[in-house]
């Protein structure tokens, strides 16, 4: 064995090829089957798509690095489930390019934060977290409420996501900017189109409390309020396997 190696280490090209082959095996064996084994991602026919406003909010969540302190992945552990809600399913992030499961809980998990607090609470919390949670060490994001949301490229965002597999329709792509306005301005003529395209369960509200303005705060709160609400599958799963998990 060491004799063979003596020959190998005299040959630069051979050594390069050996490194590539030996190192590629692990990743190939673990990643490739995830695309082909059907059970990897559960079926959830009621799974909804992020609206353009929620996409914009998700991008603000990414931009500000929220994922560095907040996970979005409830593990199959009793204390995780009792603290945060039903454990996360793979299907819930099947449209998440990229996923935001996170790796650290400096703050609590957010996988099921949608609907847990009011919009006003989120706005107050984002402006200054210590106004609502005195012990919090989260930074304030005051400027979000004053920064107008950029909507002119939302169609491009949806189109790019369609290229990587999210089933946005032509109509959704064409109306992306209008739908973003409509979702945060319930009294505007754009509002009706949002529920028509994205389903009746879509939240249509003045998320930041300012019905006449579309701000980054609207987008981020809209995103936070939809977390864990895109499908009912995890809630049904828990009901049917109650007590089965440790």
């Amino acid at each position: 064995m060491f004799g063979i190696h003596q020959k190998l280490e005299r040959n630069a090209i051979g050594f390069v090829i050996a490194i590539i082959v030996v190192s590629s095996i692990g990743g190939f064996m673990e990643i490739a089957p995830l695309f082909t084994i059907h059970e990897t991602v559960e079926e959830a026919p009621d799974m909804r798509l992020y609206t353009p406003l929620e996409v914009a909010g998700r991008n603000i969540y990414i931009r500000e690095g929220c994922y560095a302190c907040h996970s979005q992945m409830i593990r199959t552990l009793r204390d995780d489930v009792e603290r945060y809600g039903p454990y996360s399913l793979a299907v819930e992030s099947k449209y998440d390019h990229p996923m935001l499961w996170g790796s650290k809980r400096t703050g609590p998990d957010l996988a099921r934060v949608g609907g847990k607090y009011s919009d006003a609470w989120h706005v107050a919390h984002l402006i200054n977290p210590r106004d609502v949670v005195p012990e919090s060490i989260m930074p304030g994001y005051r400027w979000l409420a004053e920064t107008p949301l950029k909507v002119d490229d939302l169609s491009l965002h949806l189109a790019a996501q369609r290229k990587v597999g999210v089933p946005y329709t032509d109509e959704m792509i064409a109306n992306a900017a209008a739908d973003a306005y409509g979702q945060a301005m319930p009294d505007s003529p754009f509002a009706a189109g949002v529920t028509a395209r994205y389903g009746d369960a879509t939240n249509v509200r003045a998320f930041d409390g300012q019905p006449d303005r579309l701000t980054e705060m609207d987008a981020l709160v809209a995103y936070l309020q939809v977390l864990g609400r895109l499908t009912d599958a995890p809630y049904q799963q828990t009901a049917s396997t109650e007590g089965a998990k440790p």
Binding site: E30, I31, L34, F35, T40, V41, A90, V91, E92, S93, K94, Y95, D96, H97, P98, M99, W101, H157, A160, Q161, K163, V164, G165, V166
Partner: peptide, 11 residues
């Protein structure tokens, strides 16, 4: 936007 999503992206 990442080519991968969800569980495949995490892995």
């Amino acid at each position: 936007y990442s080519a991968f999503a969800g569980v495949q992206d995490a892995m």
